[in-house]
């Protein structure tokens, strides 16, 4: 094991896990969004150690650039920084935490046990070369094998755009008010 790789892996994975914990524990939503950016960028560094250079760049541009900015926009648009929730349903959070920990323990056990014998995933074929993670390799994989999926993804993005525009429009006048709105007369 080359030590620069291991050092890089250790630092960025520790950073990613710390930042992920911060995301779910911070009470201030802006701080949570910023920690999310840290987690996503350090995952990008992990991609670099896995020689996936193009994906690392995309990770920073799309996730840390576009998605985190979107989160920050919404948090600031709604202007509800602090957690206003009361503590009357604290037990629900405890149950959720317990369920998640059970889930995590189950996954860890499965991973430790490893795959059952005879189902080894051997998909390396002779003639393959090690990946360098360049845009060229990715483009070949996408357009030679997944061209239809690529087109469908563009449809998904179009549908999401249309849906967001439809959702974000103001309620028409005279529309029924949803019952239980806070602060309404």
């Amino acid at each position: 094991m080359a030590w620069p790789h291991v050092t890089c892996f250790g630092i960025s994975s520790a950073l990613a896990i710390t930042a992920a914990v911060m995301v779910v524990t911070r009470r201030n939503a802006v701080h949570a969004a910023l920690w999310l950016a840290v987690a996503l960028v350090s995952t990008g560094v992990l991609y670099l150690t896995l020689s996936a250079q193009f994906l690392a760049v995309l990770q920073v541009i799309i996730y840390a650039g576009a998605i985190v900015v979107l989160f920050l926009f919404v948090v600031m648009l709604l202007n509800v920084n602090e957690d206003q929730a009361t503590d009357r349903r604290r037990w629900l959070a405890v149950v959720g935490l317990a369920l998640a920990l059970v889930w995590g323990a189950g996954t860890a056990l499965l991973l430790l046990a490893g795959p059952p014998a005879g189902t080894g995933l051997v998909v390396r074929t002779p003639g393959d070369v090690a990946l360098r993670g360049t845009a060229e390799e990715l483009a070949r994989a996408v357009f030679e094998h997944h061209a239809l999926a690529f087109e469908l993804v563009s449809l998904i993005l179009l549908a999401a755009m249309a849906g967001v525009i439809a959702l974000a429009r103001r309620t028409p006048r005279g529309a029924e008010e949803i019952p239980g709105k806070r602060g309404s007369p």
């Binding site: 959070a93 959720g96 935490l97």
Partner: peptide, 27 residues
């Protein structure tokens, strides 16, 4: 990856603010 995913599951199950739940889904 397993640890990161579990933290995300904790966020979805234990948080009540919808924005944080979305962030946990991203994780």
């Amino acid at each position: 990856a397993c640890v990161l995913f579990t933290i995300g599951v904790i966020g979805v199950l234990a948080c009540r603010r919808t924005i944080v739940i979305l962030m946990a889904i991203e994780l």
